[in-house]
């Protein structure tokens, strides 16, 4: 297999997704199959070929850096999973 269960565990941790042991096994199998399929790209000689990151050809699209009033503050706060007043509540990050 191209990717081991240990590697799946590692990338799942980096990606912040909790997986069950059954999921880890399934992902190791299916991702290995996908990565094996990608080997087809090694047939292509890409020496000296520039990568294409975008297709519009637009370069440096600027706009004025102006402050606009936010008129939907209340609606945004209403979407927050846990609040105290107008503040978002998250678990503690720092230890005492």
């Amino acid at each position: 297999m191209s990717i081991t269960i240990a590697e799946v565990k590692k990338i799942a941790e980096l990606a912040r997704i909790e997986l069950t042991p059954a999921e880890e096994k399934r992902h190791a199998e299916t991702i290995s199959a996908v990565l094996d399929y990608m080997k087809i790209l090694n047939e292509v000689d890409t020496k000296g070929v520039e990568p294409t990151f975008q297709v519009t050809g637009l370069v440096n699209v600027f706009r004025k850096d102006e402050v606009e009033p936010c008129v939907i503050t209340k609606e945004i706060i209403a979407q927050m999973p846990q609040t105290e007043g107008d503040e978002l509540v998250v678990p503690e990050v720092f230890e005492d």
Partner: peptide, 13 residues
């Protein structure tokens, strides 16, 4: 769902 997780994992890798 599973496919979203799979794609995030492949991309992270």
């Amino acid at each position: 769902p599973e496919e979203v997780k799979r794609r995030i994992l492949i991309g992270t890798y």
